[in-house]
Simulated scan of single mutants.
Amino acid sequence: MVCWVGLTGGIGSGKSQAAAEFVRLGVPVIDADAVSRSLTADSGAALPEIRKALGNQLFDAEGRLKRAALRDMVFRRPQAKQILENIMHPLILAEIRQRQSVVGQVYGVVDIPLLIERPVFFGLTERILVVDVSETTQVGRVYSRSGLETEEIKRIMASQARRRDRLLAADDVLSNEGTLAELAGKVRRLHHYYLALFSCFTGANP
Rank of each mutant, 00 (worst) to 15 (best):
T137Y: 05
Y143K: 15
E151M: 10
T150K: 15
T150R: 15
L148M: 15
A161D: 07
L168S: 13
A158F: 04
D165G: 04
G147C: 05
A169C: 08
S159Q: 11
D165H: 06
A161R: 05
M157N: 03
D171C: 00
R145V: 08
A169G: 07
L168F: 11
A158G: 02
R163G: 08
E151T: 13
T137C: 11
R162I: 06
S144N: 14
I153V: 09
S146E: 14
G147K: 06
E152I: 05
D171Y: 02
M157W: 03
L167V: 11
G147S: 07
S159I: 00
E152M: 13
D165Q: 11
A158T: 01
D165M: 05
G140H: 12
L148D: 03
R166Y: 04
R164L: 11
Q138P: 06
D165P: 01
T136M: 15
R163Q: 04
I153Q: 02
G147D: 09
E149P: 09
D171W: 01
I153T: 01
A170E: 02
D171E: 10
R164Y: 13
R141N: 06
M157P: 00
D171V: 01
V139N: 10
Q160L: 05
T136V: 14
R145G: 07
R141E: 03
Q160A: 02
T136P: 04
L148Q: 12
Q138V: 09
G140S: 12
L168T: 14
L167Q: 10
S144E: 15
L167H: 01
R155P: 01
S144V: 07
L148T: 01
R163I: 04
I153W: 01
E151P: 03
R145N: 07
R166N: 06
E151R: 13
L148H: 03
K154Q: 14
L168H: 11
T136S: 14
G140A: 15
V139S: 11
A170N: 04
D171I: 00
A158D: 09
R155L: 07
R145K: 13
R164A: 11
R162E: 14
R141Q: 09
V139T: 06
G140K: 13
E152F: 01
R166W: 00
R162W: 05
E149Q: 15
Q138Y: 08
D171T: 00
E152W: 04
R141C: 10
G147P: 08
L167R: 12
G140E: 14
